[in-house]
Lab assay of single mutants.
Amino acid sequence: TELRLDINGREIKVDGADKETLKELLKLAEKNNDEKAIRIIRHLLER
């Protein structure tokens, strides 16, 4: 399955993203107070 998050109005594919990319996405999600995106990205970073 493909995991996509809508961050800042942009749909971004997050599964398969490297750790650096995920960290950047996490910063974006935190800036937007997007709890769902934050939770998902943190979960991916823990893998």
Rank of each mutant, 00 (worst) to 15 (best):
T1M: 10
T1A: 09
T1F: 13
T1I: 07
T1P: 15
T1N: 15
T1V: 06
E2L: 03
E2G: 05
E2H: 08
E2Y: 03
L3S: 15
L3T: 15
L3N: 15
L3D: 15
L3E: 15
L3R: 14
R4V: 15
R4D: 15
R4C: 15
R4H: 15
R4Y: 14
R4S: 15
R4M: 15
L5S: 10
L5A: 06
L5Q: 09
D6S: 14
D6C: 15
D6I: 15
I7W: 04
I7L: 08
I7Q: 01
N8V: 03
N8S: 04
N8W: 02
N8T: 02
N8R: 01
N8A: 11
G9Y: 01
G9L: 02
G9F: 01
G9N: 03
G9V: 01
R10E: 15
R10I: 15
R10D: 13
R10F: 12
R10P: 03
E11Y: 04
E11D: 04
E11F: 05
E11K: 06
E11L: 10
E11M: 09
I12L: 04
I12R: 02
I12K: 01
I12S: 02
I12T: 04
K13A: 10
K13F: 14
K13W: 14
V14R: 01
V14D: 02
D15G: 05
D15V: 06
D15I: 06
D15C: 06
D15M: 05
D15R: 04
G16V: 15
G16S: 14
G16R: 14
A17T: 13
A17Q: 11
A17G: 14
A17I: 07
D18P: 04
D18M: 04
D18N: 07
D18Q: 03
K19I: 13
K19A: 08
K19G: 07
K19H: 11
K19S: 09
K19Q: 10
K19W: 09
E20I: 07
E20P: 05
E20Q: 08
E20K: 09
T21F: 13
T21I: 10
T21H: 07
T21W: 05
T21G: 11
T21P: 02
L22P: 00
K23E: 08
K23I: 07
K23A: 11
K23W: 07
K23Y: 09
K23G: 08
E24C: 09
E24I: 11
E24V: 09
E24Y: 13
L25D: 00
L26R: 02
L26S: 02
L26G: 02
L26T: 01
K27V: 09
K27E: 13
K27Y: 08
K27R: 10
K27A: 11
K27Q: 09
K27L: 12
K27D: 11
K27T: 13
L28M: 11
L28P: 00
L28Q: 08
L28S: 06
L28R: 03
A29T: 03
A29V: 13
A29Q: 01
A29E: 00
A29K: 00
A29F: 06
A29I: 04
E30D: 11
E30T: 09
E30S: 09
E30R: 06
E30G: 05
K31A: 12
K31L: 12
K31E: 13
N32G: 15
N32F: 14
N32I: 12
N32M: 13
N32H: 14
N32R: 03
N33E: 08
N33Q: 08
N33Y: 09
N33T: 07
N33S: 09
N33C: 10
D34Q: 05
D34K: 02
D34V: 05
D34H: 05
D34T: 03
D34N: 06
E35V: 10
E35G: 06
E35R: 05
E35I: 10
K36A: 12
K36Y: 06
A37G: 03
A37H: 03
A37W: 02
A37L: 05
A37K: 01
A37E: 01
A37D: 02
I38R: 05
I38H: 04
I38L: 08
I38K: 05
R39K: 11
R39M: 13
R39V: 12
R39S: 13
R39P: 04
R39Y: 07
I40F: 04
I40W: 02
I40H: 03
I40Q: 06
I40Y: 03
I41T: 01
I41N: 00
I41D: 00
I41K: 00
I41Q: 00
R42C: 05
R42A: 10
R42D: 06
R42V: 08
R42K: 11
R42T: 10
R42I: 09
H43A: 10
H43E: 12
H43V: 11
H43L: 10
H43Q: 13
H43W: 07
L44C: 05
L45N: 02
L45V: 06
L45D: 02
L45K: 01
L45H: 02
E46K: 04
E46G: 07
E46S: 08
R47K: 12
R47D: 13
R47C: 09
R47A: 13
R47L: 12
